[in-house]
Nucleic acid binder design. Sequence first.
DNA 1: TAGATTGTTAATCGATTAACAATC
DNA 2: TAGATTGTTAATCGATTAACAATC
Lengths: 224, 224
Amino acid sequence: MAEKEISKAVIARLPRYYRYLGELMEDGVERISSNDLSVRMKVTASQIRQDLNNFGGFGQQGYGYNVKYLYTEIAKILGIDRQHNIVIIGAGNLGQAIANYANFEKRGFLIKGMFDINPRLIGLVVRGIEIRSVDDLEQFVRDNDVQIAALTIPKTKAPEIADRLVSAGIKAIWNFAHTDLVVPDDVVVENVHLSESLMRLSYKVCSMQDKAEEEKAEREKGKS
Amino acid sequence: MAEKEISKAVIARLPRYYRYLGELMEDGVERISSNDLSVRMKVTASQIRQDLNNFGGFGQQGYGYNVKYLYTEIAKILGIDRQHNIVIIGAGNLGQAIANYANFEKRGFLIKGMFDINPRLIGLVVRGIEIRSVDDLEQFVRDNDVQIAALTIPKTKAPEIADRLVSAGIKAIWNFAHTDLVVPDDVVVENVHLSESLMRLSYKVCSMQDKAEEEKAEREKGKS
DNA sequence: TAGATTGTTAATCGATTAACAATC
DNA sequence: TAGATTGTTAATCGATTAACAATC
């Protein structure tokens, strides 16, 4: 029963659909057509229908999509209807920012523990979660059925910690360290490389500037 | 002189090339072939050559690429050889995490100011940067030639602040708020939607589990 | 029933990979 | 010169868009 592989691009778009559907629900909207949604989201209606039909027929001809139903179905596809136990390794600002993001719990992500090597942080409590020593990491992961680890530590420490997490049976790493981790095939990695994001922004700013200057030059040439 | 538009996918890969080249430099490697680099980065050599040739011929037949030269050329392309003045709006954990990330300065990103609405934060100093009231935002942006604003505030406040930034002449917004901003065509937005990243991770974990279960079922069927 | 809108097939577009002549 | 490796063209692959019959 080999299911057709879903493309990465489709998966990447699902959370955005989910967000828009959530907002529609809040606004009390009960149904929406692919066309109306495409206008709001600035994508094509065709793409929305193609994307959703990878997972099944959630709509109804002549009616559109039921917002609430589609919302819960996408949640199931993304697996955010189930509970995920998570630990945060690195209790600095970034680690604490993640710990403080309340909505994670609403989506089934339960922060079980935080870890650091800094003795001044160990013992502190953030949002009801005690910061522990990384020495206790493996034991804690095993004892608490932790599937996901958020890695908010410097890149120099990341490979070693990743190895230890893998040996403790972690299923996935949410990697904020500025390096690519090497893990076995059955361990999932999702990278958040903020410095790369900022460089992309830099590129966009510069090419926008270049464009503006070109247009200006064009106008002045026209004048002379 | 309409330059060929560079695809988004290519731009998205440049910072990663830059990172690998930086590491090669640190290791004292002077030159590298597209093939050797492709093995390290787990991409095809063809893609590397195609990507780079969007911007010019940086290599030499029979030799490969000079690491240092390519590194500086990519920096130019990304615009990280120039200085970018930046403000951070929202001085919570996430804003402070960004302020504390030292490498930004090395890449030409200079944090000029931080802003918050919380009176308890206003006046505090983070990494030598005073936290100011958002009341002073527009004036500060104009007076300090600020091009980029990092938005680390709740989504409810984001649209209003974005409007104010635009009216103050900002060129780009690095958006961490969980919403899509509406800005004029000549203002650039780079989104970092952490909750979406976590949902993608969730999907991957679940589909990996499904795969493992399938394989297990397959094995047991084989046995019986 | 008539109108609306999906699900799905076909057409187009773009991105990746392969191949190889050019050339260091 | 011979070997290596690029730059670039051509082939392939995949993703997006368009179109429309199916159907609520």
